[in-house]
Amino acid sequence: MSQQRDRRDGPTGGVDVQIFAQTPEQEGQQTSGQGTGGAAGAPAGAARASAGAADDAHPAVPEVVTQALTENAASIGRALQVLASMERSGSLQELSEILSLLRLLKSALTDDMVIGMARRVEGLAAVATDPALTDLVTRLPSALRAAEADAARAATARPSVISLVRQLRDPKVYRGLAFLLSLVKHLAPEEPKARSSTSV
């Protein structure tokens, strides 16, 4: 109920200003901005006179533009044709909207986030390009194909303990098993308790 009283007390509803940051100076800027909008509605002659004064103050600007138009007339003409075509088809609008996504990304991200993502990309890239991994990945397709072929040949034969023991004598099987057992050993977390712990 005290918060209801707050709303009564405040000149603009009291607590509303809590939601967003806005300094009194910014409020002032916005108010003056509206005033500027009002000035934009002044008679056209006044606006032209104002523009003319600006041209006098910076005579080089239109000259540069005129020179650029003259020197690149053909290119600019073709570019305008493309632009007009894109505008008619709606592509220009789509392009503008897609470009606004870049601004969105820039707005949403911070230095810390970019650094964090770059660090993770680097970490993943380091793993992906590790020679041990690339060597294993390179050997995997041929190993898979050979295993599928072996499995197809053996599909009708019933596995027995003797056949398993016989396969263990194969040096390649022995090395493969040794590799897998060692891999399992090294994949084990060093501190089992570290992963723990949903306690209640």
Partner: peptide
């Protein structure tokens, strides 16, 4: 659409689009 702002700079909403909705 979206807004971004901080203690010093007020938000400036951009025109709404389907791309931002998809984002």
């Amino acid at each position: 659409t979206y807004v971004e702002f901080d203690y010093e700079n007020p938000p400036q909403p951009v025109p709404a689009s389907r791309w931002i909705h998809w984002a």
